[in-house]
């Protein structure tokens, strides 16, 4: 069966707290509801956009930049929370999640439901492990993601 919902875990596990996405994905592997696929992405988001075309929902999980509360989990609705405001494509090096979602929306490739979970990091040093605050938040983040995905899977129409 084709996946109707994708959990997209973003980040580089070799860059400290940037590895939060892959780390929470590892906790959810094998526990996802039917119709939900897990994808990892540590680089080229442009290449992901076309694959969103026929999805019912896209749930993204990524580390966010330090804002003084390491380990805090934020749930964002990109449209309502202004994630698309003032975005511009300045370079492929600067092509982040907001730019990818903005471009997908403009092209009509964004799924009807897009949710972003951001786990605030504090240390992004190459080769460093996850910080204590981020590691401690992973179980709670996994539980919230699983709840979200179960709700979305229940609403999404079945596909043969």
């Amino acid at each position: 069966m084709n996946a109707r919902i994708v959990l997209l875990a973003l980040g580089n596990p070799e860059r400290g707290d940037d590895g939060a996405g892959p780390a929470v994905a590892a906790r959810l592997r094998g526990r996802l509801p039917a119709g939900v696929a897990l994808r990892l992405c540590d680089g080229d988001l442009l290449g992901q956009i076309e694959t969103w075309r026929d999805l019912e929902a896209l749930v993204c999980v990524d580390a966010s930049a330090p804002q003084g509360e390491p380990g805090r989990i934020r749930r964002l609705d990109p449209g309502a929370d202004g994630l698309f405001r003032d975005i511009s494509l300045t370079s492929s090096h600067g092509f982040g999640l907001a730019e990818a979602l903005g471009l997908a929306r403009t092209l009509g490739l964004a799924p009807p439901r897009v949710v972003v979970y951001a786990l605030e990091g504090s240390r992004f040093t190459p080769g460093a492990p996850l910080s204590g605050a981020v590691a401690a938040a992973l179980d709670g983040l996994a539980a919230r993601l699983l709840d979200e995905l179960v709700r979305l899977a229940a609403k999404a129409p079945a596909r043969s």
Partner: peptide, 14 residues
């Protein structure tokens, strides 16, 4: 940028 361009030239960006 290409995101703005996509509104008028979506086929090319696709």
């Amino acid at each position: 940028d290409a995101i703005r361009m996509a509104a008028g030239h979506g086929d090319r960006v696709r």
